[in-house]
């Protein structure tokens, strides 16, 4: 498939999914009312439902997915492994750990403290992964270090919940760690957008070099790739984007593996060309999954992160098994 066709198709699908997300909800609204509200011409209640509840929620789902999809595709290109992803490598868990710490122990300092803490946590984890990747050439070691990092962050999170000063805030925190975009506002999006934008720019400028890494590090360096610069760009870019996504929605796993996996065959397996479509595909998947979450019957709403894990984890195992049988 040609890249422009793929990108246009994904952009159109994403816009359609965002529009569809505005249609569904606990208050039934027909297409006419939704469009009127989108244009600000609806009733006060309709406008509020669309602009304060449904649109920011759907947009959050898309942005979180896009950040994780782009980070996943970039990390997979850098580490030359289709299983590399912010969730598997412990980046999301580290971001969630730092953000939770701030929420529990000092959340009222500033509105920016949660996104900043989340980004710092993600950057520390990505840097650790990149340093390990540099020292070992074993992808297995790298994935295991990621699993260890993830477990450590989980353990520290449990410790923190154990010692939490305000037990009443535990439910909030617990819900947040499950991963959800419910009740997000444009203000929440605005607070993470600088990190998202910067992360996206860093990943985009590194794309061309990722293609050359297909040939391995020595050959990539010999054709003109500055490996040190590339690693720094991807670590910063993936850290910023993942940290921002965790600050907005908590840790949502596996979408960073699944989306690039679906996209890669459609753009010639080129890591650079898969960055943008993988981001859109991941955003699209999360918007659709979030619509599913809202439409599911039941008293309690299923959390987006839980659904993503329920679908993503078996797919992850499938990818692992197919790789080991072809190797």
């Amino acid at each position: 498939m040609r890249d422009p066709a793929l990108n246009l198709g994904l952009a159109a699908s994403s816009l359609s999914a965002l529009a569809a997300a505005c249609l569904f909800g606990s208050t039934p609204m027909d297409v006419g009312r939704v469009f009127a509200a989108l244009l600000g011409q609806g009733s006060a209640v309709d406008n509020a439902i669309i602009w304060q509840i449904r649109l920011p929620r759907a947009l959050s789902a898309f942005l979180v997915g896009a950040a994780l999809g782009a980070s996943g595709a970039a990390l997979q290109g850098l580490l030359r492994n289709p299983l590399a992803e912010p969730g598997v490598l412990g980046v999301s868990a580290s971001a969630a750990l730092c953000a939770s710490g701030v929420l529990l122990w000092g959340g009222s300092v500033s509105a920016w403290s949660v996104p900043v803490a989340s980004v710092i946590g993600a950057l520390i984890a990505t840097a650790i992964i990149a340093i390990v990747a540099w020292r070992t050439h074993s992808i297995l070691t790298l994935i295991l270090v990621g699993v260890g990092l993830s477990s450590l962050a989980g353990a520290l999170m449990s410790l923190m919940l154990n010692l939490a000063p305000h037990p009443f805030s535990l439910t909030d925190l617990f819900n947040w760690t499950l991963g959800s975009v419910a009740n997000r506002s444009f203000m929440d999006i605005a607070q993470v957008s600088p990190f998202l934008v910067l992360g996206a720019v860093l990943l985009a400028v590194s794309g061309r070099s990722l293609s050359a890494l297909t040939l391995g590090e020595a050959t990539a360096a010999s054709v003109g790739v500055n490996l040190v610069r590339l690693r720094v760009l991807i670590v910063l870019g993936a850290g910023l984007a993942t940290g921002a996504s965790v600050a907005l929605a908590g840790a949502i796993g596996f979408v960073g593996i699944v989306a690039p996996h679906l996209i890669r065959p459609l753009c010639g397996h080129d890591p650079a060309r898969s960055l943008l479509p993988a981001a859109m595909m991941a955003g699209l998947l999360l918007v659709i999954a979030d619509i599913g979450v809202r439409l599911m019957p039941g008293v309690f709403e299923l959390k987006l992160g839980v659904l993503a894990a329920l679908i993503g984890a078996p797919l992850f195992m499938l990818i692992v098994l197919r790789r080991s049988s072809s190797a």
């Binding site: 003109g224 080129d270 060309r273």
Partner: peptide, 27 residues
């Protein structure tokens, strides 16, 4: 020494990476 190609890319794409220093954009 190694002739690794990590992803199953097309022959033409691998050869095109030889032009990396000339500023090519793959595809």
């Amino acid at each position: 020494q190694t002739r690794a190609v990590v992803w199953p890319v097309k022959v033409r794409e691998v050869v095109a990476l030889g032009r990396f220093a000339h500023g090519i954009v793959t595809g």
